[in-house]
Nucleic acid binder design. Structure first.
Length: 586
RNA sequence: GGGGCCGUAGUUCAGUCGGUUAGAAUGCCUGACUGUCGAUCAGGAGGUCGCGAGUUCGAGUCUCGUCGGCCCCGCCA
């Protein structure tokens, strides 16, 4: 069945220039208002909304058919564009000065009653939205988010193309490597008992491309990790992956700063200040309690461990003895905090591993649980060290360095939100000088970034005796407190790569088995190279002002990794399992 | 693996100390209405209180289990 009426315009594109023209538009009935005589229909497509008028005196037949229209129906209408009568202009609509007097109508499809209205501000659970994602995506807001996503990707491609990069696809079905996140495994029908892993990132492939001499590679690529989900983490996420040969850190910083300046200029009309600030990992942890600090507000952490008299508090005494830290954070004008607030804050830090939270209300009569324990002089010392004034509140945590950072870093973010301290705008910065290794919970040495990251030249002699002191040639890009990218200069000498794998407890035999192809490639004249990868979902989320990456992904997964629209994952048939040489354990 | 919040009409929610026939708003249906745009007015329909078990004379309400959604910790080279 062909469509009789062919579209000539998009609904939202019509304006006064089209006055008196006969036009045909198509779209969905967004709103239906029947006044007994005249009927108004708001017809919408991806471009916007136009008001249709069905007048029984002018076009009786089409008016009577219009009476059956309902929200969500799909129609094509032909009519004349007219000015709205004076006093009936709708300033809320882009097309609010005009309307379409309908002469012909074709009903292209009907619709069941919609589970929620197709509007920007809807009050509906995410569960329902995801179940009917195709309706959710019909909303202007979601259309805008996905359009923005496309525009960002397009800008990236344009920019990198001009800079001499080419986009090369790498396999999704790859070898499972031991390090890192859990793999999604894919059974191999042709190789019984063997599995592919969906790539967590094209890391090794892109290094191979550098060995191959492509020099400047990028890819907009899906990456898979079988780990638990968060508001900013999905099991499949999209990455802008890049790698360059014959470069050092400065080359990467310059290129990326230029790229972001370009993107922000085009998307937001903002000129970013370059170079972006660079903060050493150590310093970020010290000042913000985070390796991805949000610099849109201050609230810095201050170390007060050295203040005389703190040891009179047993808890602090213990902390000092064990080489821990006592640090504080100052909330300007915080004295309005209630007992209930304090309880909530305490609960926050204890859930992060701290044993407790102390506070000092700086006012005429100082209010603090430390009043009875510490001397007046010590408390004054703290207030002075923190630079607090009357009306401020200080929060203090004493514990192991990592716990203090985590507790106060979290408090910092929470308090900034609570006291509305977060300014609008975009704060980009580099975090540099990461340690090459760290210890996991079982005390094993693991790479902070990944095992192919190059140590700093001057630290190479330290690799053997004190690997924990070795700094990496790695860098992260942070935007408004969100890690949006990270990368490193890679190891391009086989010997050093073997040494690093060794330190990680992967002996030569195992290294050769699992990473033999990499080691071999490095031994065939691998050029010095490095790169970076960006979380595209997070970037677009921040650019669109959303608080979850699910708002910028067309078909996201729930927190349990399921798709409410298609009901994936699902059981498969015995035959399928049989063919794959698999048996499901009950 | 753990902590927190939540699940009642299509949707968003209320539901007192465990007590009669589970309510509201909105949406939906029918009718009226010629300038609305959150249309208005009148009438009406609509419920597996997520599911299962238990306590009780009696459970939306209490207990246990289970399923599902969201936030967080762990995890995320």
């Amino acid at each position: 069945m062909g469509t009789l009426l062919r579209r000539t315009h998009l609904c939202g594109d019509l304006d006064e220039e089209n006055l008196n023209q006969k036009v045909t538009v198509t779209g969905w009935v967004r709103k239906y208002r029947d006044h007994g005589g005249v009927i108004f229909v708001d017809l919408g497509d991806k471009s916007g909304v136009i008001q249709l008028v069905f007048n029984p005196q002018l076009h009786k037949e089409v008016h009577s058919r219009a009476r059956s229209l309902r929200e969500g129906w799909v129609i094509a209408v032909k009519g004349r564009v007219t000015l709205r009568p004076s006093g009936t202009v709708n300033p809320k609509l882009k097309t609010g000065k005009i309307e379409l007097m309908v002469e012909k109508m074709e009903i292209l499809n009907v619709s069941r009653v919609l589970p929620f209205p197709i509007e920007n501000e809807i009050q509906v659970s995410e569960e329902v939205r995801l179940k009917y994602r195709y309706l959710d995506l019909r909303r202007e807001k979601m259309q805008k988010n996905l359009l923005l996503r496309y525009q960002v990707i397009k800008l990236i491609r344009d920019f990198l193309d001009k800079k001499g990069f080419i986009e090369i696809e790498t396999p999704f079905l790859a070898r499972s490597t031991p390090e890192g996140a859990r793999d999604y495994l894919v059974p191999s029908r042709l190789n019984p008992g063997e599995f592919y892993a969906l790539t967590q990132s094209p890391q090794l492939f892109k290094q191979m491309l550098m060995v191959a001499g492509f020099d400047r590679y990028f890819q907009i690529v899906r990456c898979f990790r079988d780990e638990d989900l968060r508001a900013d983490r999905q099991p499949e996420h999209t990455q802008l992956d890049m790698e360059l040969s014959f470069v050092e850190e400065e080359d990467i910083y310059n290129l990326i700063e230029e790229m972001f300046t370009f993107i922000f200029e085009k998307i937001q009309g903002i000129t970013l200040q370059t170079p972006f600030p660079r903060i050493k990992y150590e310093e970020a942890m010290e000042r913000y309690g985070s390796d991805k600090p949000d610099l849109r507000f201050d609230l810095e952490l201050k170390n007060i461990t050295h203040i005389q008299g703190l040891e009179r508090f047993k808890v602090f005494q213990n902390v000092i003895k064990k080489g821990g830290q006592i640090k504080g954070i100052k909330v300007p004008e915080g004295v309005s905090l209630s007992r209930k607030d304090l309880e909530e804050l305490t609960q926050r830090v204890t859930s992060l591993g701290a044993k407790g939270l102390c506070w000092i209300f700086v006012q005429k009569e100082i209010k603090s649980p430390l009043n009875k324990i510490l001397s007046e002089e010590t408390i004054k010392g703290i207030i002075k060290e923190m630079g607090a004034r009357e009306g401020d509140v200080l929060f203090i945590v004493g514990d192991k360095k990592e716990i203090v950072a985590k507790a106060l870093g979290n408090l910092r973010l929470y308090l900034a939100t609570k006291f509305n301290l977060i300014t609008s705008g975009y704060k980009l910065l580099w975090i540099i000088d990461f340690p090459l290794f760290e210890y996991d919970t079982e005390g094993n040495l693991i790479p902070s970034h990944h095992p192919f990251t190059s140590p700093k030249d001057e630290d190479i002699p330290l690799l053997k005796e004190s690997p924990e002191k070795v700094k990496a040639r790695a860098y992260d890009l942070v935007l408004n407190g969100e890690e949006i990218g990270g990368g490193s200069i890679r190891i391009h000498h086989r010997g050093i790569q073997e040494k690093v794998l060794n330190i990680l407890g992967i002996d030569s035999l195992e290294a050769r088995e699992k990473f033999g192809f990499l080691l071999e490639a490095l031994s065939f004249g691998a050029p010095p190279h490095g790169g970076i990868a960006f979380g595209l979902d997070r970037l677009v989320m921040l650019l669109s002002g959303e608080e979850s990456i699910r708002e910028v992904i067309a078909f996201p997964k729930t927190q349990k990794g399921t798709c409410l629209l298609t009901d994936a994952p699902s059981k498969v048939t015995e035959e399928q399992l049989e063919e794959l040489h698999l048996k499901v354990k009950e």
